[in-house]
Amino acid sequence: MTTATIEQPDRGPLTRTELAQQIAADIPPGSYVNLGIGQPTTVADHLAPDSGVVLHTENGMLGMGRAAQGDEVDPDLVNAGKVPVTETPGAAYFHHADSFAMMRGGHLDVCVLGAFQVSGTGDLANWHTGEPDAIPAVGGAMDLAIGAKDVFVMMTLFDKQGRAKLVPSCTYPLTGVGCVSRVYTDVATFDLTPDGVVVTATFGTTVEELRSRLDVPLLAG
């Protein structure tokens, strides 16, 4: 599937909210979806009520609802980030081995994950900085990365030092190999295809400018 790249140099980069809206709009209706801890969780706020999307949480639930408020808070009902949530009609609970069978067995349609780095061939690094004093913690990231049919990454394209996070080869420890299908960032979206990295849209920049700042060859539709 190749569509023309939409270049929008005259607007600003996407805000966090706009980025979440963008991803929500691209999730097919009726999908089973897992949203990673942190920023990806906000995608849920922008899914259309009639989208029929069913949210999976790794700790054993399908049909997860919004964050719990006030009297709704129940310590036995939390999401992967251990935030109290609600259940929707038709929700189901199950144990951890079943929950991860849903990932590994290819039953989840989409997952949205944050990333430290993504390579042009879809390798993902999002669990460990590799620094000597960092305590490693992987959670369900590796299982999700290789399990969902489509893995979307949600991140800023550049880190605080201005270094690109879409790279020819990840320098951080890997979470999964060749598993990312699409990268959503504040300044551009990318499809990672067998032919290479295709820029599908830009926000506040151009493909030319991105080519000068990234070490990954970019294709434009």
Partner: peptide
């Protein structure tokens, strides 16, 4: 500390 991916932890116990 032994870090195990969460699904592997569940499946190894299973």
């Amino acid at each position: 500390l032994e870090v195990v991916p969460q699904g592997n932890l569940a499946e190894r116990i299973r």
